[in-house]
Design a protein around this nucleic acid. Sequence first.
DNA 1: CTTTTTCCCTGGACGC
DNA 2: TGCGTCCAGGGAAAAA
Length: 264
Amino acid sequence: MPELPEVETVRAHLEPLLTGRRLERVEIHDPRLVRPLEPAEVAAELQGERVVAVERRGKYLIVRLASGGALLVHLRMTGGFPSEAASHERAVLTLDDGSRVPYRDTRRFGTWMVASDPDAYLAGRLGPEPLGPGFTTAFLAKRLAGRTAPVKAAILDQRTVAGLGNIYADESLWRARLHPRRLAGELTKAEVARLRRGVIDALERGIALRGADLGDGVYGDGSMQDEFHAYGRTGEPCDRCGTPIVRTTVAGRGSWFCPRCQVA
DNA sequence: CTTTTTCCCTGGACGC
DNA sequence: TGCGTCCAGGGAAAAA
């Protein structure tokens, strides 16, 4: 559930803790976290490495190492680096200043992997950063052209744009006034431009508010949930036209939209 | 190639 | 109160 704004918030939290530090000790308690490798193999690769930067690409955290490689962390649904003791601790980093950085993940979907060439690895599975120069209307139009999948499915595809999940997909479509079931290939140029703008605005707002906090201890301390226009708002009035928000299922995901201003 | 479906996992919500 | 059932969701993998 952490999406781009939440992962960015985690990145900002980790950066001052890790940058410049050496990984003194790496304990991986849950073998699933690093499959198919064994925890001991991953720990051995990481121990003794120095962290030179903590970056983000899409929903991945990139813990860059002095060797040129990186630890790639994907939080999936419930992963996170709590600042206080928490249950479901799946791994712990001990740094050369003696500090402990615990990783928790209730549902155990998150992954850690060591990549020798992280940029190549990520480039092969992710489209452009939505807040970077590559996410142009022309690129988005090309990605959507000819596709018969619902536009919501298309923007959840990380190769179309990196970092959207179910929440920000719905918020982006609301801002763009597009029905989630519209066929991706049938959008007009003007609608594609609106979609791009909706994605950018929704994510920038999410980052500014330090992400959403859904009260389950998974998302951070952000306040984006107070500004949701669509997600989870069944029956509540649309902030544009007052029509009650409707829930349906698109691409196998709960999807909320305004049936009046997001026209099918 | 595309699109859809299944699966992984846990805790919280809900019905009886 | 205590069960059983359903649901949430990212993305890999399989199926179509």
